[in-house]
């Protein structure tokens, strides 16, 4: 009974649209197209599996997640550990590191597009100042995705850092004190006390970070529009382009269903791994 309000909202805004997406995905519906809609079974799914662009989008998305999540999590952890030393000026640094998180992704993207500008951007001016040749960054086949990864890291690390900090502050100081009395040095305290106790926080950061990385879109939309050579066409960008720009609604719905399965599978595997680790 008490669940009713929340359950109703979830049903209207989550369950029902999800079912509709699944329903659409087995039709040939196109947004605003005249003519009747037909049920076509799994045709959209079959076509997706043979669509080179879709396969590339899966590859790009997974590659990005594999690179971005460890990078962001480890940087965030390092920053949190450093700030947890409670050095003078820590508060200011914490605010500074957190600041990019509150920026709109679009604003951050526009700022970084200036930094990456091939001729007038700050990065290339720094490089040429150091005698290193100019880099294409966003127009380079191998550089575009890492360039977007750098922006995403800059924006997200502060957020994960704050979560790690909260986790660190929750670790009872008695543990470290006891370890110190037993003669553990700083490294040993970190390795055998802090990190194991921080494990649930780390698991949270990795799971959330993975989900965020898998749904990368805005940075791509602002900076590269999926290019060059499709090197930054993520799954969500593919979805947006097919579904809203090209109005291949049913096809995009099928892609969304597969994306849902992908995220679900990865999340389940991660949870299993975390639980297995915690049970040790």
């Amino acid at each position: 009974m008490f669940l009713l309000p929340a359950g109703l909202l979830l049903a209207i805004f989550l369950v029902w649209p999800t079912l509709q997406v699944l329903g659409l995905s087995i039709t040939d519906y196109q947004l605003l197209a005249p003519g009747a809609t037909h049920v076509v079974g799994l045709a959209n799914y079959r076509q997706l599996l043979h669509d080179a662009e879709f396969r590339d989008a899966v590859r790009v998305t997974v590659t990005f997640a594999l690179g971005a999540v460890p990078l962001q999590a480890s940087l965030a952890l390092a920053l949190a550990l450093a700030l947890n030393l409670r050095l003078p000026g820590g508060g200011i640094l914490r605010a500074a590191f957190f600041y990019p998180t509150i920026l709109s992704v679009v604003v951050a993207g526009v700022i970084w597009s200036y930094l990456y500008h091939p001729t007038q951007g700050m990065f290339n001016q720094l490089l040429t100042g150091l005698g290193i040749p100019r880099q294409p960054f966003l127009s380079g086949r191998d550089q575009a995705l890492p360039a977007i990864g750098a922006l995403a890291a800059w924006q997200n690390v502060g957020f994960y850092m704050v979560i790690f900090l909260a986790g660190l502050r929750q670790i009872p100081t008695q543990c470290s004190e006891a370890a110190a009395l037993d003669g553990a040095n700083g490294w040993q305290q970190l390795r055998f006390i802090t990190l194991p106790l921080l494990r649930p926080t780390g698991a949270f950061v990795v799971v959330v970070g993975t989900i965020y990385a898998l749904r990368l879109f805005t940075e791509v939309y602002v900076l590269t529009r999926g290019g060059p050579f499709g090197a930054t066409r993520t799954l969500i960008y593919f979805l947006w382009e097919e579904g809203l720009r090209f109005r291949h609604t049913a096809y995009a719905a099928a892609a969304a269903a597969l994306f849902f399965l992908l995220v679900l599978a990865i999340t389940l595997v991660q949870r299993r791994l975390v639980e297995a680790g915690a049970g040790r």
């Binding site: 997406v21 197209a33 003519g35 809609t37 709109s104 679009v106 526009v110 805005t218 939309y221 579904g243």
Partner: peptide, 29 residues
């Protein structure tokens, strides 16, 4: 233009609305 991109802020939102709208009406127009 680069300056234009600042105005894409609502793009994601609009896109979302479009998808909802899309889900709302598979009936013939």
């Amino acid at each position: 233009r680069l300056t234009r991109r600042a105005f894409l802020t609502i793009a994601a939102g609009t896109a979302g609305a479009g998808l909802l709208a899309a889900c709302g009406g598979p009936a013939t127009q």
